[in-house]
Design a binder for these strands. Structure first.
Lengths: 146, 146
DNA sequence: CGAATCTCAGGCGAACTGATATGC
DNA sequence: CGCATATCAGTTGGCCTGAGATTC
């Protein structure tokens, strides 16, 4: 194999490793949150809503690194369960203002506690000294793929 | 916030960074492969089949870090397009032996070329010296989440 | 026989595409 | 007008549960 070919193989390996790590983490997070009746992706939305009261769907999309249609569908599900509320934005007629209900905040805090073992497990997988480098590299990847 | 609480916040940050990086990469890969009429996930299966002729669905599941039902559904789609063939395993009556068709291999090689820019972009996002560390850390994460 | 492994079928939540409506 | 925000319909991928088939 050529030297250039080997380099592209590196890219393939990195992509496969990122894929495997994410899928495994996602499965693990789902397992730790299933008892609370919430999926890992729903937990992501709840955590974004918990740190920043009243945000637009557009802001959720950007911060979750997700898609407008996906976020909307998830919010509809969460709204049916009375965990979030969506109201018309006070000044922008196009936007929706989303926030946690009291039940939603309560649920989120319980879920955060339930998922402590998951975060502990994730942290012990990587040496403390390498964590910052890892997060930094992941952010560079996310940035480069935009 | 307590010191322990901050540590768990680190776990959350790592999880969010991993999520954002994967989702962005997946979108980017899809975009580079769309012209070839194949999704990023289908390309993963094709690449696994290209490097190891005749594998069982179970082996594909493990190597793709995926799920048996997911792999099956994807293979059904690929088989409809005559890119892969599934035959009964010669010795194990339970298993299916999967391999690329001639058309499948041809398609894969074209797709590999099409996706060179994607891999280049991925590699340039991370300094050459940090790539091995990154891949290593990601593999540790995947291992710890199993 | 039971236990384990592989496959298949149906259903759900999530990610995306494309098109559409509405307000800025 | 263009642009941004949200919505709706449809496709694919990921996972689960439960079932059937085969092997050990």
């Amino acid at each position: 194999m050529t030297e250039l070919g080997a380099k592209m193989g590196q890219g393939h390996d990195l992509a496969m490793a990122l894929r495997a790590a994410y899928l495994a983490m996602h499965r693990c997070a789902d397992a730790h949150l299933a008892a609370g009746g919430v999926t890992a992706d729903q937990f992501v939305l709840l955590s974004l809503l918990a740190e920043g009261d009243s945000v637009t769907q557009r802001q959720l999309v950007r911060r979750a690194g997700s898609d407008a249609n996906t976020v909307r569908a998830m919010l509809v599900l969460l709204e049916k369960r009375a965990l979030v509320s969506r109201r018309p934005h006070p000044t922008d007629g196009r936007a929706r203002s989303v926030c946690l209900t009291a039940k939603g905040r309560q649920t989120y805090e319980r879920l955060w506690a339930d998922s402590q073992p998951f975060r502990r497990r994730l942290l012990t997988a990587v040496d403390a000294g390498k964590r910052r480098t890892l997060v930094e590299s992941l952010r560079r990847v996310a940035e480069a793929m935009k």
